[in-house]
């Protein structure tokens, strides 16, 4: 049974993730007063890229790309999608956070292996940015874990049955959402891939299959990140309700990113460690003294 559930989770990640990315492109197009590609454009992109003959930059490069995709797929299978939980009892916040690092490190290793200075700068920026958003995010998660005395995502979801964490701990939810924007690489936090500066950074040497695999990796990571936010802050519910909440969060993030430019990398870290980190500590303090709505 578990294997079917894992398959269902991964297929959801694939189809819903790519569809919503296509819809996001359409939404951004409308903000920019143009028509935009069809909603299924990302499927076309991925299948086309995967069907072409690629160019490798050595085995570290190959291994890094596979590690990135594998790591993210492994992470996704542990994330509960509403009431669809592939590994009940193992869907822990820490499991997800640690497994998620495997994908990021795989990507870093592979892209640096390509030998392009733009890729190295991009990876350095991505890891620096991670340092920026992880700290406030973890502080706000720690407050929640402390409050509910559990780190199981399913339990956290079930415990929000009366009121969502979004309303119980609004400051923490805001911090998590700002961190989520950084995780998704949405503007103003798309510094690691900044096309005008470092020619798309990590992706600069990717061709065909490698690009396809990384696009899939990106889709799955988006799915993991938003699912985690939805599960922890927007309460539980059935599979379909979960997907609805997921879509709303994704569209809000897309709309915000459509009208903002990007920060410089040191501005990213400065921002995260000043505003969201301060707010996260404030929320943690409120939880400690019992001020929870």
């Amino acid at each position: 049974m578990t294997i079917f559930k894992v398959a269902a989770v991964l297929l959801t990640g694939f189809f819903v993730g790519l569809t919503l990315e296509g819809i996001a492109r359409k939404i951004i197009a409308r903000v920019q007063r143009r028509y935009g590609p069809p909603w299924y454009q990302n499927f076309i992109d991925v299948f086309k890229a995967l069907s072409k003959h690629g160019f490798s930059h050595g085995w570290i490069f190959d291994f890094g790309v596979l590690m990135a995709l594998g790591g993210v797929i492994a992470t996704l299978s542990f994330v509960p999608l509403g009431n669809l939980v592939a590994f009940p009892g193992l869907d822990n916040v820490f499991v997800v956070l640690y497994l998620f690092a495997v994908g990021a490190l795989g990507m870093a290793m592979g892209m640096v292996g390509s030998g392009n200075p733009n890729a190295s700068i991009g990876v350095a920026r991505a890891l620096t940015q991670m340092l920026g958003y992880e700290v406030p995010y973890l502080v706000s998660l720690a407050a929640i874990i402390f409050y509910y005395k559990t780190s199981s995502i399913s339990n956290l979801m079930n415990l929000q049955a009366d009121s969502w964490n979004l309303f119980k701990m609004p400051i923490g939810a805001a911090v998590a959402f700002i961190s989520l924007m950084g995780m998704l690489g949405k503007k103003p936090f798309d510094t690691p891939i900044a096309p005008a500066e470092i020619a798309s950074g990590p992706m600069v040497e990717l061709s065909s299959k490698y690009m396809g695999l990384l696009m899939l990796m990106h889709t799955f990571s988006i799915f993991v990140e938003i699912s985690l936010f939805v599960d922890i802050f927007l309460g539980g519910g059935s599979y379909l309700v979960f997907l609805l909440k997921f879509t709303v969060v994704w569209i809000i993030a897309t709309l915000i990113s459509a009208v903002l430019p990007r920060f410089r990398i040191e501005q990213v870290v400065k921002f995260y460690w000043r505003v969201p980190l301060g707010l996260a500590f404030l929320q943690a303090f409120f939880v400690l003294i019992g001020w929870v709505f």
Binding site: I28, V31, P188, A196, E197, V259, L260, P261, R262
Partner: peptide, 8 residues
């Protein structure tokens, strides 16, 4: 818009 990433 390009350098700033403000693609609108």
């Amino acid at each position: 818009g390009g350098p700033l990433g403000l693609y609108t």
